[in-house]
Every structure is written in C-alpha cells, then in structure tokens.
Simulated assay, not measured.
Amino acid sequence: MEKKYQVFVSSTYEDLKEERDQVIKAVLEMGHIPVGMEMFSAADEEQWKLIQRQILESDYYVVVVANKYGSLGSSGISYTEMEYDFAVENKIPTLGFVLNEQSPWPSQKSESVEKSRKALTNFKSKVKSKLVQFWGSKEDLHGKVSISLIKAITTNPRTGWVRSSEVIGPEVMKEIARLSSENAALRNEIDRLKSTSIEKNDEIREVVKILDRNEFTISIRFSSAWEGADQYKATLLDIFEGVAPNLQVENSLPEMAKNLALHIAKSTGYYKDYPIGKNKIIGWAADLASLDLIEPSKKKHSVHDKETYWSLTKLGKQVLIRSRRIILEEGLASADGES
C-alpha cells in the first residue's frame, strides 16, 4: 500500500506567499498532502481549535521563518509560534527552515517594531534549538524541504493515509491465513528468506562497526584562513551520518563539506567555501565508496557543471536507516554525543 502523509505548513502569510507555494509544491510533487491555516475557515468553529485538530492529524510539521513575527493570538504570541509549540508538545516531527541572515531580503518584509523583532529573535532561537535548514531563496527552500521530508519519512515513518480500497478486510485476511496454513512449501520458503535477511542485517551491522572503528581529526575553518581552524575528533560513522541524508538524492563535494561541518561543529558559522579541506572530503568519499555506501551520481548535469556528485547506494540507504538503532544496541559513539 502506498502511503500519503499529511504535512502541516506553518509560516507568516503575506510576506511568504511565494515561499509557501514552493513548500506546498514540494510536498505535492512527493505525492503527499499539504495543509496550512490559510486553507481553513473559522465560520463553524473557533479558528485555533481547528488549527490544533489539523496539526494533530498531520504526520509532519514544517515551519518556515523569515523576518516577520506574524499576527498575534489572544495570548500575545504569534499564530506561527503557537502552532510550532503545539506541534512540539504533541510530538509531531518538526522540520524547521530559517532564512539565512546573509541572504538579501526586502525591508518591507521585515519587522520594524522593536517588540516584534525581539519576539521574532526568541522564536528563531527556539526553532534553531532543533536541527534546522537555512534557506536563501524560494528555489533553495523548495529543494531543502524535499530532501528533509525524504529524510524524515525514511528515518521516522508515520501512520500516514491509504485508500480504503487498498486496506485488506477481515474476509481477505481469513483466506490468506487458510491458504498459508495449507502451504508447507511456502512456509519453508519464508524460513529461507528470513535466514537471508538475518545475514543481510549482519552485513549492515558489520559495516557500521567498521565505520565506527576509523577515527579522524577534522579541521573546520570559520574564516578564509586555515590557521586557527577548530579541531574535532570524529569517526567515519560520524562523517557518513553527516553527509548521507543529503545523498539520498545526490550532493556535490562542496555541499558535502558544508553538511559535514554543520553536523560536526553544530554551527552554521563555518566558512562557506570548503569549511573542510577538499582533499579530505574526496578521501572520505573514497573510503565510503570502498564500503559500497556511496557511488558517483547517475543524474545528468550541464556540461558546464564541473562539480562531482555522489549519491547513496542501496546498501548505503539501508545503513542510513539502521545505523542509529545499531549505535544504541552496540553502545557505539556518535557525533551528537549519543552512545
């Protein structure tokens, strides 16, 4: 059964119409269901209760923040922040997208009142306390929402929705049970497949252990100079976890360097042009390729595009899905301090 997920899209409205359209387009292109407060009418019941109900029924929650705090509810808190708090309190997986401070932005779409600017700063800090993506344009936002949703659905699948015609009813279940009980050959085949699956799981576990055994010192620069670059200890497993989510589609070497810097340093203040040395990124890419976790991307690019692109292999995707559980089961270290 093909699942469709409901994605609640939250943001200020007037200043982010085009950006919201791109987020909704990204969700629709993936075959899922976007919803947001501008789609609702308060004619039959009070608006906030309706919004709460829609958030509770959603599988994922996306919040887009720029330089407006937005209209306020009766509590003096903006509806966008109220929606975000409600989603977090009810453990709805939240995906945050905050405007990059270095990106150009129209002054008329920014807060002019000091009280609102302060409230916006506090709200951004709240959103950034979780892992977020920073965007600079509506096109950039579209791509990052798509990648983040793919990652969220892969690592944290939710209930979702299916067509009623695809749901197997009790009569069909009885017939399946009857046929299964009469078919000894099928049961033997299932046992064989289970044995094969166990072998495959052992292979994934062994790859994760190999990644964890190889440790490196990573230099991350926060200016154009390499002198004074911060030093971090990280395993090849940390490196894989830093770059793999964005390799589910594909990613270039410069972007892999930025993703890894964010993952290891937990900061967006890194130098934007190869915060980690290009030769280091190439070397680690070769290490991951030797373990059959990544491969050169098969997507076509412009002849003028000289970048090298990589993507996850089938094994790489399986390792990405299962690595966090194996880390917990084996007591392995990770870059975010879990063990």
Rank of each mutant, 00 (worst) to 15 (best):
K4Q: 09
K4E: 01
Y5R: 08
Q6M: 04
S10N: 03
L16Q: 13
E18L: 10
V23F: 00
K25H: 12
A26E: 03
E29W: 02
E29C: 03
I33C: 08
I33S: 06
G36A: 11
M37S: 14
E38P: 05
E38W: 11
M39L: 14
A42C: 10
A43R: 15
E45I: 04
E46K: 15
Q47A: 13
L50N: 09
L50C: 02
D59W: 04
Y61M: 06
V62L: 02
V64C: 09
L72F: 01
S75H: 07
G76C: 02
M82L: 15
E83C: 08
Y84P: 04
Y84G: 00
D85Y: 04
A87R: 09
V88T: 14
T94L: 00
V98P: 00
K109D: 05
S110I: 01
E114N: 11
L120V: 09
N122M: 06
F123E: 10
K124T: 07
V127C: 01
K128P: 00
K130E: 14
L131D: 04
L131G: 03
V132I: 00
F134C: 08
E139L: 07
G143Y: 02
K144A: 01
K144C: 03
I150Y: 04
T159S: 08
W161M: 14
P170R: 02
K174A: 04
R178D: 08
A184W: 02
A185E: 12
K194R: 14
T196H: 10
I198Q: 09
K200R: 13
V208A: 14
N214R: 15
E215M: 09
T217S: 11
I218P: 06
F222W: 07
F222R: 10
E227S: 13
A229T: 10
Y232S: 12
K233Y: 05
I239Y: 14
F240K: 11
F240H: 10
E241M: 11
N246C: 08
L253P: 01
A257E: 06
A257S: 15
K258R: 15
N259R: 13
L262F: 15
H263K: 11
K272C: 03
G277M: 13
K278R: 13
A285R: 09
D287I: 02
L291Q: 03
D292N: 15
I294V: 06
P296C: 05
K298Y: 04
L315V: 10
Q318G: 02
V319D: 06
R322A: 13
R324L: 07
L328Q: 14
A335R: 15
A335V: 09
D336G: 09
E338P: 06
S339Q: 12
